[in-house]
C-alpha cells in the first residue's frame, strides 16, 4: 500500500472507526514511514485543538404550545372533502358556461333571428364552398334588401299604428273638451234667456202701469 492509501485509514483511526485489520496495517506503515507519522501526529493534534472549543448553552427558551383551532377552523377541516367536491362543481359549471359562450352563434333565416348555444363547436350543416360566385353575392344582396325592406315596413307600420293611436287620443280629448264647452255655453244661454224673459215681463208690467197712469190722466172727469 502507498502512503496515499493511508490517508483515510488515519482518519478512521483518529475517530475510532477503524477495523482491527486496518489498524494493524497503519501501525506497521507508521513504523517505517516518517512522513506519514508526522502527518498522523499533526492530524491528531489538530483534532485535539478543536476539542478546546466547548459547547455553550443556547440561552433560548423555545417552547411549543398547542395550536388552538377555533370552531370554524375545525368545521372547515372536517368539510375538506366537501370543499373539494364544491370546488369541482364550480369548476365544471365555469367550464360549461365558458364553452357555451365560446360556441354561441346568432343567425338569421327566413326573416327570423336565431340564437344557438353549444358546448362544443358544431359543424355547419351546409358547407360553404371555397369560392363565392356572383350569384351568391346577388342572392345575399337580395336577402339583405329583403331584410332591410322588411325591417323598414315593420318600422313604418309601427309608426303608423302609433300615429293613429296618438290622433285617436287627441280626437277624444278635443271632443271631450268640445262637449264640456257646449254644456257651458248652453247653460249660459239658458240663463241669458231666462233673464231676458224676466226683464221683458218687468218691462210689460211697467208699460201697463204707465199706460194705465196715462189713461187716468187723460180722462179729466175722473
Amino acid at each position: 500500500m502507498k502512503c496515499e492509501d493511508f490517508k483515510l485509514i488515519m482518519i478512521d483511526t483518529i475517530y475510532d472507526e477503524i477495523s482491527p485489520e486496518n489498524r494493524g496495517k497503519l501501525e506497521n506503515h507508521l513504523k517505517g514511514c516518517k512522513s506519514c507519522k508526522e502527518k498522523f501526529s499533526a492530524l491528531k493534534a489538530t483534532s485535539n485543538t478543536l476539542k478546546k472549543w466547548e459547547d455553550v448553552e443556547p440561552k433560548v427558551n423555545l417552547t411549543f404550545v398547542n395550536e388552538s383551532k377555533n370552531f370554524f377552523a375545525g368545521f372547515i377541516e372536517k368539510l375538506r372533502p366537501v370543499k373539494i367536491l364544491y370546488g369541482l362543481g364550480i369548476a365544471c359549471a365555469s367550464l360549461f358556461i365558458i364553452l357555451s359562450i365560446a360556441n354561441t352563434s346568432i343567425n338569421y333565416k327566413d326573416g327570423d333571428f336565431g340564437l344557438e348555444m353549444s358546448l362544443f363547436k358544431t359543424s355547419p350543416k351546409e358547407q360553404v364552398s371555397g369560392k363565392v360566385t356572383k350569384m351568391d353575392l346577388e342572392e345575399l344582396r337580395r336577402d339583405n334588401l329583403n331584410l332591410v325592406s322588411h325591417l323598414f315596413e315593420e318600422y313604418s307600420r309601427q309608426q303608423r299604428v302609433e300615429t293613429v293611436m296618438l290622433f285617436d287620443e287627441f280626437y277624444k280629448d278635443v271632443e271631450h273638451k268640445r262637449q264640456t264647452d257646449l254644456r257651458l255655453v248652453s247653460g249660459v244661454l239658458q240663463q241669458v234667456h231666462y233673464g231676458a224673459e224676466q226683464r221683458l215681463d218687468r218691462t210689460d208690467k211697467a208699460l201697463s202701469s204707465l199706460i194705465r197712469y196715462v189713461n187716468m190722466q187723460t180722462r179729466p172727469g175722473q
Partner: peptide, 16 residues
C-alpha cells in the same frame, strides 16, 4: 466524507 475530514484538518492546521 473521510477525504473532506482529512483535508479539512490539514487546512485548519495550516491556517493556525
Amino acid at each position: 466524507i473521510k477525504s473532506r475530514m482529512y483535508y479539512g484538518l490539514n487546512s485548519l492546521r495550516k491556517v493556525l
